[in-house]
Design a protein around this nucleic acid. Structure first.
Length: 345
RNA sequence: GCAGAGGUGGCGGAGCGGUCAAACGCAUUGGACUGUAAAUCCAACUCCUUCGGGAUACACAGGUUCAAAUCCUGUCCUCUGCA
């Protein structure tokens, strides 16, 4: 697929946060039908570091990956690690300053440095640094987040264009993140102001589900309605299979979620044989089940192994169990994406 | 046979007079996970219950005490050392 066509069709990107989809080789990843992945700026910054990534020829060479790479900006980590005080650091007007829990080294993530790092990683699709926060924000907090996100997006774009020549020179795409929490007017304002800056894609940021676990479709729709029709819409972190279907219906084309791979490792698999499509492989009932996880699935796991085998391998903590489960879930998601592309009968 | 040490929930293992249905691990059984600090986390795990409790329980049988898994006596069993 040509990069310029990214997001014209539905696409699901697994998270290869640190340069690998956990428990999978690049070859196994390709075999699931995956054509694009997400890696993370902040994780790769901490290890192996931006300079080292560049020295090694970038993520694609390192992974031997010939598909598309999208780098998340680190905005979400700013939220989940620094705002939540899991890492020591602080968020300020200029970005975030924080200490690596690994080495104690102090890092400064700014809109400009985020772009620099993403360039050094060798990303195809960059994401602007955003000020992501928890749910249930007060209006003031949400407003501050929106204003900062817009300002940082502006700085990212300026830097990307001045320093690297922008999309024209690099052939890379730059997408931005829309914040605004659950305030539709703030979402709208954020979407409109970002649209004026003309990005290649618009990503729905913040938390995608409410406290009840329901996808925030209304907020998501505001963003679709207030961003350019011809640019891709990326629902970051979405989601459960049904959430992806619902988001697709209102106009989102690009998806990623940790659920697919994390659930696999934790024994929550997907199967069209099961009502509700969730199969908890660790449950006792599968200990002697000789059937494949999903009778309609064409993945390596389903073609070669039984539910009982995956159950047993996961139960005893064999890495192979994680691998087989991850392969299946990823393939399930890729097939889900294929069905979205087909017109409803 | 003699001398030590010891027998606690499915397993390992704390507790050594009251706050013990008994820490903690493991196993088991459910559940959660949504831009990955996650091969993680949560819950249940003697029986009954109208969820307030109730009844049995720490090898077995007695005993001391207001009160025993904890102290005493006997029985059975296990391990280590010496013959």
């Amino acid at each position: 697929m040509e990069l310029k066509d990214f997001g014209k069709q539905y696409i699901f990107l697994p998270d290869a946060t640190r340069g690998a989809v956990r428990f999978l080789t690049t070859e196994q990843l390709k075999a699931t039908g995956t054509t694009a992945i997400v890696t993370n700026t902040l994780h790769l910054l901490i290890s192996p570091g931006a300079e080292r990534m560049q020295e090694l020829g970038g993520i694609k060479k390192l992974m031997n990956w010939d598909g598309i790479v999208l780098t998340d900006s680190g905005g979400f980590q700013v939220f989940s690690l620094i705002h939540s005080k899991k890492w020591s650091g602080k968020v300020h007007e200029n970005g975030a300053t924080f200490k690596s829990p690994l080495t104690g080294d102090v890092y400064e993530l700014t809109p400009e440095s985020s772009i620099d790092i993403q360039m050094k990683i060798g990303s195809d699709i960059l994401v602007t640094l955003d000020d992501c926060r928890k749910t249930n924000l007060t209006r003031e907090e949400a407003l501050e987040s929106v204003e900062r996100t817009i300002e940082w997006a502006r700085r990212c774009k300026n830097h990307f264009e001045k320093e690297y020549g922008g999309t024209k020179e690099t052939g890379k795409l730059l997408s931005c993140v829309v914040q605004g929490a659950n305030y539709p007017d703030l979402r709208k304002r954020c979407a409109q102001e970002l649209s004026e800056m003309d990005f290649d894609g618009y990503n729905f940021g913040g938390f995608v589900v409410n406290n009840e676990g329901q996808l925030v479709l209304d907020e998501m729709k505001v963003v679709v309605d207030n961003t350019p029709k011809d640019k891709f819409k990326y629902a970051m972190g979405v989601g459960k299979p049904q959430d992806i279907r619902n988001a697709a219906e209102i106009g989102y084309k690009v998806f990623d979620t940790v659920l697919v791979t994390r659930n696999a490792r934790h024994g929550t698999l997907y199967s069209s044989d099961i009502e509700g499509e969730v199969l908890r492989i660790s449950n006792a009932e599968y200990a002697t089940d000789q059937r494949p996880i999903d009778s309609k699935c064409d993945c390596y796991t389903c073609k070669n192994h039984s539910r009982a085998y995956v159950h047993q391998m996961l139960k005893v903590g064999e890495a192979t169990g994680m691998t087989l489960a991850t392969i299946h879930n990823l393939r399930y998601y890729q097939r889900l994406i294929e069905t979205l592309s087909q017109p409803c009968p």
